[in-house]
Design a protein around this nucleic acid. Structure first.
Lengths: 361, 361
DNA sequence: TTGTAGGCGTTATCAA
DNA sequence: TTGATAACGCCTACAA
């Protein structure tokens, strides 16, 4: 049977409450008493029973991070950052994988596991603006991305349009004229695909390049395999290109594979840039240029906002939308650095913080 | 204030116990009563309070998975598999990152979070055979890997020696004579590095190749960067090689980068094989041959063994050691397939199950 | 088939 | 500075 505060109290010859005080760092305890309790705790190997504490305090000390899939490097790295940030603040993270399915994303908001944690950092991929009502719940949420603006929650997003535009302009500045896009979602109005595509189009316009639909490659899921397929299709169609902007790094690495398979030199014949700046990017051959959307800052900010709201009392603060700075990192795949050299910072797109008006939930 | 069973009972005009029975699927309830309770639950938006249930049942429904780092693709994919397997069985996974530090690994066994979950799947990287005593705890553990054999726990391990030997023999079978190893840990007696190195030496011996210390490249951490460095050092030293066995895929991808930077053709001049068969392997250029250690089966087996032990009553079953089959997957980097083709199965090393004698903890 | 009583281990309240 | 006592919300016995 597990050791309880009762056992410790008995052994130390004090009351249960005193043990509790010692455990929780209550300051007004005689040093001698504290010492005796500490010894008893160690002798008995006592550990606080979290379930009991949680029941009593109505807090679990856990937050949920809901992402599509951990095996996607971007989300694995994000999870790493979120866990570390939460850990520093003394909190523990529970990860939910949604597989980007509508059902599982809904479940995250109202399912079985909901009452296990005190708050949610949520990166939705299936839910959209029509589902805002689902976000009206009795626990704080921080939403990553811009699929569901208007939901009663804080948002931490990427600088998608500005960063995509900057990436496109960077390719244009290298003299590329036939810039393909890989990863588009036809007809979608919200989400990263739509925003990054918009940025791409803005970039083309600003560079004075025409928009050719043949240069748009669809890819529903942003995996290496779909990136490779989309690239292959475009090449097989005989579409003439001299640059590729892939909407994330997985797509870019897949595209790189397909380009290589077609005997096309990167960056000689085709310059390539991705998005996310995952760790892999540095080590592909050639090393992949990418957009660094400020992942670590996103993670830290999300945890910060969430814990702030969990700890908040009184009137709810207005919701905020935070956009970290993003950066274009030039590497070998755009010829920004010679082979074997580190990536270099090409440009920075500034983010910002704004307050969002939402009917309080 | 949150809705409790009490509120539901009142609304449905039944006792608390009846609500509890409905919630927990107790069969002997009149359909009409059940219906009434269900409606009350929905009207009120009632959710079970997990803390209270956990306190009462002494179960949390959570298990911990402790790994070094999620940003390492192998562990991200392992976590994905473990979460999925646990989810299927109705369990939730809490991930702890240890950064392979001794302190954090010890913490996993006895720290603050220990009482949050019912069991532990642990992939230690710092603790070793001298720390077996730490594993004598009052909750079940499944250990991944073979650093701490003898600990009172079930083990799920890779077929390290046999698989490494097979990988080495595969390179030899391609006519390679100067097979380098990347990722060795000098002086270490336990752990993946030691075992895979042993397999490499066995492979060399069986192929009748001499062991040349110049062909052994050290790399403490198995990251892409350290793999690239180790490879670079060896190349800069002018060591003659025609094949590389990297002890994991991250090292292999780093090595590939370094080989490329030196203008060396893979597999033309140097054949390359990794270990882990992470998703990246398929999409590097050239696609990376690798050892598939049976990750998914490892995850499923670990979850299965753990849940079995959590649910066990009565005398403890003897500890088991399970070794899934491993496979050599040949791709472009060993010239096993032509460019653009899928990998092919080169060989299978059979694992097995054995019972381990350990003084019961 | 349903209800009542009691306790799981902790923290909050209020005295002492 | 410390102690008694009452919840927190649920489940297990046992009774009806």
């Amino acid at each position: 049977m597990a050791v309880t505060m009762h056992d410790v109290a008995q052994r130390a010859g004090v009351s249960i409450k005193t043990v509790s005080n010692v455990v929780n760092g209550y300051p007004y305890i005689r040093a001698e008493t504290r010492q005796r309790v500490q010894s008893a705790i160690e002798d008995l190997g006592y550990r606080v029973n979290m379930s009991a504490r949680n029941l009593r305090t109505r807090r679990t000390g856990l937050i949920t991070l809901a992402v599509p899939e951990l095996s996607l490097p971007y989300f694995a790295e994000l999870a790493d950052s979120v866990i570390s940030a939460a850990d520093t603040a003394g909190w523990t993270v529970l990860i939910e994988q949604t597989s980007a399915s509508r059902e599982r994303e809904t479940d995250v908001l109202s399912g079985r596991r909901r009452h296990l944690t005190d708050g949610l950092i949520f990166s939705p991929l299936a839910l959209g603006p029509d589902d805002i009502a689902l976000f009206t719940v009795d626990f704080p949420i921080v939403i990553l991305g811009e699929r569901v603006f208007g939901a009663p929650a804080d948002h931490v997003t990427m600088n998608n349009v500005a960063a995509a535009k900057a990436a496109t302009l960077h390719l244009a500045s290298l003299g590329r004229r036939r810039i393909a896009l890989i990863g588009a979602h036809a007809g979608e109005q919200v989400g990263s695909a739509a925003l990054r595509t918009a940025g791409y189009l803005e970039g083309l316009a600003e560079a004075g390049l025409p928009h050719d639909p043949a240069l748009i490659g669809e890819a529903g899921l942003w995996h290496r395999s779909t990136g490779a397929e989309a690239m292959r299709r475009m090449l097989d169609d005989g579409t003439e290109i001299d640059a590729v902007f892939a909407l994330n790094d997985a797509l870019a690495l897949g595209a790189l594979h397909a380009l290589h398979a077609h005997g096309i030199d990167v960056p000689g014949q085709v310059a390539l840039i991705g998005f996310d700046d995952v760790d892999d990017a540095k080590y592909s051959v050639p090393a992949l240029s990418s957009v660094d959307p400020g992942r670590d800052q996103i993670a830290r900010t999300a945890v910060e906002l969430l814990l702030e709201r969990i700890g908040a009392t009184g009137d709810p603060a207005p919701f905020r939308r935070v956009v970290p700075d993003s950066r274009i990192v030039g590497r070998e795949s755009t010829g920004d650095v010679a082979q074997g050299q580190e990536g270099r910072l090409v440009s920075v797109q500034e983010g910002g913080i704004e307050t969002v008006e939402v009917a309080s939930g």
